[in-house]
């Protein structure tokens, strides 16, 4: 495959596209890790949502006080 006299423009376009895709994937993964850590931290401190307090654990039927 030869890219001719405009190779820099073609490779530049693909490079920018790869950079943007990498940034989007990294953003989603880092954000997921951050939210999961925050949720785990709150649950470890015994904080639960109202819906969970009302219905309890759906697997055991146990109601959280």
């Amino acid at each position: 495959m030869t890219l001719g006299p405009y190779a820099a423009f073609i490779l530049g376009a693909y490079g920018i596209a790869a950079l943007i895709v990498t940034a989007m994937v990294a953003w989603v993964m880092i954000d997921h890790r951050r939210q999961a850590r925050a949720l785990a931290d709150l649950e470890a401190r015994g904080v639960t949502r109202r819906s969970e307090q009302r219905t309890g654990d759906p697997r055991t039927g146990e109601v959280t006080p």
Partner: peptide
Amino acid sequence: MRRRVRTMLML
């Protein structure tokens, strides 16, 4: 998940 964290922090 972010909205759940926000709700739990408010509670």
